[in-house]
């Protein structure tokens, strides 16, 4: 059989995986929404959470789509479609494919024609990311019990503990933005973008608190992010 990574069998597999993901997401979305109702939460605010989360997601999702395009050059479309819809991220899938291709001495400069190389890459992509998904059902309850113990002993410290974890993550990613500044002015672009995004968020905060424009609260993060991405488009040609 002539192998083609874009054939209909692969698309059928992709559609099945995508339908599963949507079903799981819908299940938890509906369940959480009903739970919010039971708890007497402000349903208008919860509906706004849905719309603001959806808008926030657009730009990162398009960036994930770019990852699908990158991988599709040598893996066809359906496999990257599957991989980047479940657990994978381009930062992982690309090294996984490259590592396997180099182990097999296969070139990734054109679409793969060897089904064994293709299946080897699929296995490496799948197995290489398994711990993060397998460990959730095993460890989640224990992690939560640990946090509950901290909170029961001292609830203020419990809240500070979780906030400190958030800040740890944010610090790591903000620090990463500084990794290229030794390469000259071009290396400063991510920092300018970061600062511009922070500035836009600050302006949204002023509009909310001083001018009482309440709707802006739900869309402040997408506004800051998209505004800063547009800023990157404007400043990059001037700097590079």
């Amino acid at each position: 059989m002539n192998f083609n990574p874009n054939d209909s069998f692969m698309y059928i597999l992709a559609v099945m995986v995508i339908l599963f993901i949507i079903a799981q997401s819908l299940f938890f979305l509906i369940r959480a929404y009903r739970r919010g109702k039971e708890l007497g939460m402000d349903m208008k605010k919860l509906r706004k959470t849905i719309s603001s989360s959806a808008i926030f997601t657009v730009a990162p999702a398009v960036s994930i789509l770019l990852g699908v395009l990158t991988l599709s050059k040598f893996l066809g479309l359906p496999l990257p479609w599957i991989r980047l819809s479940v657990i994978g991220a381009i930062t992982y899938e690309l090294p996984a494919a490259t590592s396997t291709a180099s182990a097999l001495s296969v070139s990734l400069s054109e679409t793969l024609k060897d089904p064994k190389a293709f299946s080897a890459i699929t296995w490496v992509m799948t197995l290489g990311i398994m711990p993060s998904i397998v460990l959730v059902p095993i460890l989640l309850r224990r992690i939560q019990k640990g946090l509950t113990t901290i909170k029961t002993k001292d609830s203020k410290w419990g809240d500070l503990f979780i906030t400190a974890m958030f800040l740890g993550m944010i610090s790591a990613f903000m620090g990463m933005v500084f990794s290229n500044i030794r390469s000259g002015l071009a290396g400063w672009i991510p920092i300018f973008v970061l600062l511009f995004s922070a500035l836009l968020m600050g302006i949204c905060g002023i509009l909310l608190k001083v001018f009482k424009i309440n709707w802006i609260q739900d869309y402040a993060l997408p506004i800051s992010m998209l505004g800063a991405m547009a800023f990157a488009v404007l400043i990059t040609p001037l700097i590079v």
Binding site: I170, L194, S197, A198, S224, M225, M229, V233
Partner: peptide, 19 residues
């Protein structure tokens, strides 16, 4: 450049709130 800078664009806005 927009997609190259998606992480700083995201963590700038998010970071300033938490920090």
């Amino acid at each position: 450049p927009a997609f190259d800078n998606i992480l700083p664009a995201l963590f700038g806005g998010l970071g300033v709130v938490y920090i």
